[in-house]
């Protein structure tokens, strides 16, 4: 009798375990559902758009005026606007971040590291709307004192603030890459009589290069998709230019502009946001996948050591 009860109880427990396993299996599939959802929504939203506007006009045109009477649907001004602000941001962020990550991983005494790490983490949490405020109301007036022909909205000041924004992320990721380099390599270098500088520049950096590359790609992806800073401070004027002093419009800023405006849904003007969103998603996806690939390569490199 007692044996039978035990058996029943064990079976009940086993059944419960199976239900739990299935339920949480479902929640792990949710991420795949979200990814499919993003694809479907963007494609489904932009298909009607591409039935009215040809792909050649969209990807070949150099004028973007869907909200005007004389409509042109060439995405290039938005793409160059996005690339320009991101380029300014990366140019600003990369040298500082790389040196700072070297400092944190290779040079800093333990106490300094323990001081700086939490600060960087907190800075990484500053919402982007705050950087938008910086860019428009503080940095632009500053810069205008030095560069008189800087427009009130410019990719320069938006890009600079975006650079400051991505710095904590870039520092953290590159530091992780540098720290993943096995210490045997450093010790070997010291044993041969090299100093810190030589060890870092000739041994550690080259060994971590794919990890750092992964970090840079991820930061670029972040910059491309950044919305609030550029929507506030880079302007809303689709402009095919590479002059950072001018006002530009990025893909994200355009989506915000249409969403906040009174464009009626269902019109071709409104559907542009899905086509633009799809382009943006494609660009960032390429960056993310390359970054992921590089990171895997980097991790496998030292996995055996």
């Amino acid at each position: 009798m007692r044996n039978r009860n035990n058996k029943l109880r064990r079976e009940a427990i086993a059944r419960k375990e199976r239900y739990i396993e299935r339920a949480i299996f479902g929640s792990s599939l949710l991420s795949i559902l979200i990814a499919i959802g993003i694809f479907v929504v963007l494609l489904w939203g932009s298909l009607p758009f591409f039935s009215e506007v040809s792909l050649t006009e969209f990807f070949g045109g150099t004028k973007w005026t869907p909200l005007f009477h004389d409509k042109h649907f060439g995405i290039w001004p938005l793409v160059t606007g996005t690339l320009l602000t991101s380029a300014v941001a990366i140019t600003m962020a990369l040298p500082f971040s790389l040196l700072a990550s070297i400092y944190l991983s290779e040079l800093a005494p333990r106490k300094h590291r323990q001081l700086f790490k939490p600060i960087i983490e907190i800075l990484a949490g500053i919402p982007t709307i705050v950087y938008g405020y910086f860019a428009l109301l503080i940095v632009t007036p500053w810069l205008q004192q030095w560069i008189p022909d800087l427009a009130g909205f410019s990719s320069l000041s938006a890009g600079i603030c975006m650079g400051i924004m991505i710095m904590p992320m870039l520092i953290t990721l590159s530091e992780d890459a540098l720290r993943a380099v096995p210490s045997e390599l450093r010790e070997g270098s010291y044993a041969l009589g090299a100093n810190k500088f030589t060890t870092v520049t000739k041994i550690v950096l080259p060994s971590a290069i794919s990890g750092i590359g992964s970090a840079i790609l991820l930061s670029i992806s972040r910059a491309l998709g950044e919305t609030m800073i550029v929507a506030i401070a880079a302007g809303q004027k689709p402009n095919l230019t590479f002059d950072p002093r001018e006002s530009v419009e990025t893909m994200t800023a355009y989506i915000v502009q249409v969403s906040m405006g009174d464009t009626p849904t269902g019109t071709v003007e409104y559907r542009t946001i899905f086509a633009v969103g799809l382009t943006l998603f494609g660009l960032t996806l390429i960056m993310n996948l390359c970054s992921y690939y590089l990171k895997q390569k980097f991790q496998n490199k030292y996995a055996s050591l």
């Binding site: 939203g45 992806s221 998709g225 919305t227 899905f274 996806l285």
Partner: peptide, 25 residues
Amino acid sequence: YIIEITIANLASVPSIIYGMLGLTI
């Protein structure tokens, strides 16, 4: 591995794209 790659990628999809997903769904 598919789920792992998906999660890593979702973490760096621009937030505005999530906005468009939310808007439609």
